[in-house]
Amino acid sequence: MTILYFLIGCSILLALIFLAAFFWAQKSGQHDDLYTPAMRMLLEDKEEPPPEK
C-alpha cells in the first residue's frame, strides 16, 4: 500500500500543474474577453492572419 504515497504525490503534482496553467492563462489576459473569440472563429479568413500577435 505504500505505493499510495507515490500515487497521491503524483496526482497532486499533476493538479498543481493545471492550477499553474490556469494562473498563467488568467494573468496573461486570456479570460478578459470570453465573447469575441467565439464570434471571430465563425468569420471567413481567406487572407493570411495579421502578421503580429
Binding site: D33, T36, M39, R40, L42, L43, P50
Partner: peptide, 25 residues
Amino acid sequence: SSCLWLLEQLNKINPAIYYCRVDFL
C-alpha cells in the same frame, strides 16, 4: 460580426496599422 470582421482588417486599408483587436462586449 461584420463590424468585428471589418475592424480587424484595418491593416488592409492602411498598412501602418499593425494590429487591431475588438472586444465585442
